[in-house]
Structure formats: structure tokens, C-alpha cells
Amino acid sequence: MPKMAKSANITWKTSRLPDEGRHKKDCLKMEERDLLNAGFRYALSLVRVEPDAEDLVQESWLRLYKKRGRRINKSLLFRTIRNLFIDQYRRGKLAVFGQFNEEQEYPELTSLPSDVTMMDLELALAGLRPEEREAIFLNSVEGYTVDEIADFTQRSRGTVLSLIHRGKQKMAKVLNPMGSDRQESSI
């Protein structure tokens, strides 16, 4: 029987290429950047002012990182931002939550005009209460369902629906005054 060539038994060790490690590191950093930006947008929906949102996301991120290292996900980050926001609000650092006027009526939301600028949107969002902005953000931007928002914010489903509806109505009034005027005059 012919001897088997020695080379047949050799198994080549596949060493990890240096680029592979770098690529993985880059991906991880990219994920962290995306997460930070998502957190920033959420913080912005709560505080509206960019520097405050930056501080909020930074503090939340560092708190989480200290506890969990890289094991941070979006839901955890949002929750930490929210808790920190409430803490700061309670300490009077952020004067935000307004009174919820259930009696006030707003016109129904129709489609937005196509020439809405970022400045208009900013103004419209500025007129909302933080909880309305938060609910709209989670629903429209993050794609949370009403039930998920209710669970996350620990509010009833009805309240969340009302927050989204009223928020959108308020925005429509700012962004589409003609439409709302028409609607008001028709009532």
C-alpha cells in the first residue's frame, strides 16, 4: 500500500487577518455611533434644545457603559435617557412638562404641505409638550406601536393615542394654518 503523503495530514491554521479585526472594530464603533445618534434624537424629542439633548445622551451613555460595557441596546439607552430626563426635571434642571389641557380642541390633521421647511417643523415641534413629542417620535420615527409606547412610558394606551393625536393636531395648526382655518370655518 503506498504511503500517504505527509502533506495530506497537514491542516492549515487560518489565522485571523489583521484587517478582519479592524473591520470588526470599525463595525462596532459604527453601531455605537448609530446608537448614540438614535439616543440623541430621542433626547431631542424630550428636551428640544440640542445642547441639553447632547448632555442627556452623554450622561446616559456613560452611566450605561460604566455598568454594562458594550452591552448597550437602544431600548436600554432610551430608558436611561428617559429616567435621567425625569430626574433632571424633578430637580428643576429642565423646565418642560406642561399642563395637559384636555378641554382644548385642535383641528383634525390633514396632509402636510409639501413646502414645509425644517424651520417650520422645528417651530411646530417646539409648540408640543415633551410627552407629545416623545410619543410622536417613538411612533413616527422609531416605529413603536401604541402598545409598545404605552408599555415603555408606563401610560395607558388611551393616553398615548391622545398624546399622538393632539400632538399631530397642534403641529398641523402651525404647519398648515390655511387647512385648519378652512376646517374651523366649516365647523
Binding site: F40, R41, E50, L112, E122, S140
Partner: peptide, 13 residues
């Protein structure tokens, strides 16, 4: 509406 809001927030980073 949702699209407009999303566009607005996406521009923020």
C-alpha cells in the same frame, strides 16, 4: 406626516 417627522429627526445627529 410621519415621513416629514422622520425626515426632520433623521437630519439631526
Amino acid at each position: 406626516f410621519d415621513e416629514t417627522i422622520k425626515r426632520y429627526y433623521s437630519s439631526m445627529s
